[in-house]
Design a protein around this nucleic acid. Sequence first.
RNA 1: GACCGUGUAGCUCAGCCGGUAGAGCAACUGACUUUUAAUCAGUAGGUCGCGGGUUCGAGCCCCGCCGCGGUCACCA
Length: 508
Amino acid sequence: MTQKTSVLATENDTPQDDNILKAAKLKKLAAFEAAGGNAFPHKFHRTDRAGDLQEKYASLENGVETTDKVTIAGRIMAMRNNGMFIDLHDPSGKVQVFCHKDSTPAEVMAQLDYFDLGDIIGVSGTVRRTPRGELSVRAIELTMLTKSFAPLPDKYHGLTDVEARYRQRYLDLIMNDQSRNTLRTRTKIVRAIRDFMNGIGAMEVETPLLHGIMGGASAKPFITHHNALDSNFFLRIAPELYLKRLVVGGFADAVFEIGRNFRNEGVSPRHNPEFTMIEAYHTYFDYYDVMTHIEDMVRYVVQTVHGTTSIQYGEHTLDFGAPWQRKTMVGIVQEETGVDFLTITDPAAARAKAKELGVHVEANANWGQVVEAIFAEKGEHKLIQPTHVMDHPFDISPLSKLHRDNPLLTERFESYANGWEICNAFTELNDPRDQLARFQDQVAAREAGDEEGMMMDEDFITALEYGLPPTGGWGMGIDRMVMLLTNSTNIRDVIAFPTLKPIGGGAK
RNA sequence: GACCGUGUAGCUCAGCCGGUAGAGCAACUGACUUUUAAUCAGUAGGUCGCGGGUUCGAGCCCCGCCGCGGUCACCA
């Protein structure tokens, strides 16, 4: 019987690194390189992926050996019996590697001493299923592909520290199936949305993130500075006004943009300072057409991602298959409070009514703000099944066209599911005279101290003066949608690298 | 921004009334083996988030600060 000793057994140098675990790996690396090994080769040719092998050999019976030779590559996630069994993971799945002295050459067995958990290796060998049922590759060759210096977390408990999971997402992805699946589902959702939009002939476009004038939404902005132009810019809070300019230009019958917006507001389980939205504009749509379109698209996305049109979120089953409910905002307020605000249009009277209902509103709130506040407090959270909330007050909808039947209202709707707003849409305001007046109202509110009021965008007015055809537009928060479809309770779980406070305070 | 909670080994967690800092995994040295969180023996590993204070003595008590989480406010 031969005495088996570690390649490190004779080494006696003191670890230089303060982390003893890293030092051990570096020592192993040094021994490997001293023996002529390349820990970071440039290229490796693999023939198969772990997950594909699992599918291909799904019916291979326990204890059966094949002569099929495969070459795989992946990260060592577990080693048992001194490396006799290795769990090798690649993005498609996992397969076990089996190294045995009877079939694996001695010089190849010796390689095992250089391997650590976390290393990325290549394996060539034959496919078998062990008597206990684990699909394995019986190793004939082992190749170091990337040496890992950092120790992996506990193989059983994994990485659970939430801060570490967000700050070191790479490690989270290595360790946690759920994180991987959630972020992969995000990718699939975005692809499904894009496929649907392309399928109806909409043109995907890109518009500026650096805005000289803030507009398109009500929000506090980030401000940045361009040196050569010696100008401050706002990071965009919405792409809306640029997308409509494209429609004015006759660029396409429908345009859409999927991109990041930035709002300098609170961080919460449902708010990240940078978030992803899709906005789209369809010529000759009114908001009824947009409602149908949203239902079709969401149904397609849910079906594509989940294979069914109803999904589970927490305790609720959400059905995106059936036609969505359509309710007016004032109608919901009336349902919940018994008060018909269409008959209380004086702002002071409306504010008084709000107070009576126990809803706090600002002292100078206008009629629309009162209605919205009551809706938000009394009605919003009850909208579990997909619902279009229609006909928002004119004075909270500065880019929406007035309602064809009631000038207090606009042809706007917000779609809700699970109590969350997932979509905001309207028949676009295209009368430049009206738009100018709305902007003037916004500017006045701004001057009165409303930080979120829009700024006057004269060029946008000019664009409308050339003629924006009748158009329906909408925006949808992708992150919220991903949360719904992945049963996630925190927006940070659906963003690969959520905004966190920089260690050490960040840029000053 | 306010309130509540939390921070101990690379990871996951214990740590009593204030009395020498603990375990499992990972690592290292061996043993053994067709394993599935392999097993067995041994070894090493700590700025107890940071800074003050109280005390003979602080991981624990007090004050301040920092990070993270939750709730609220604002918002999508």
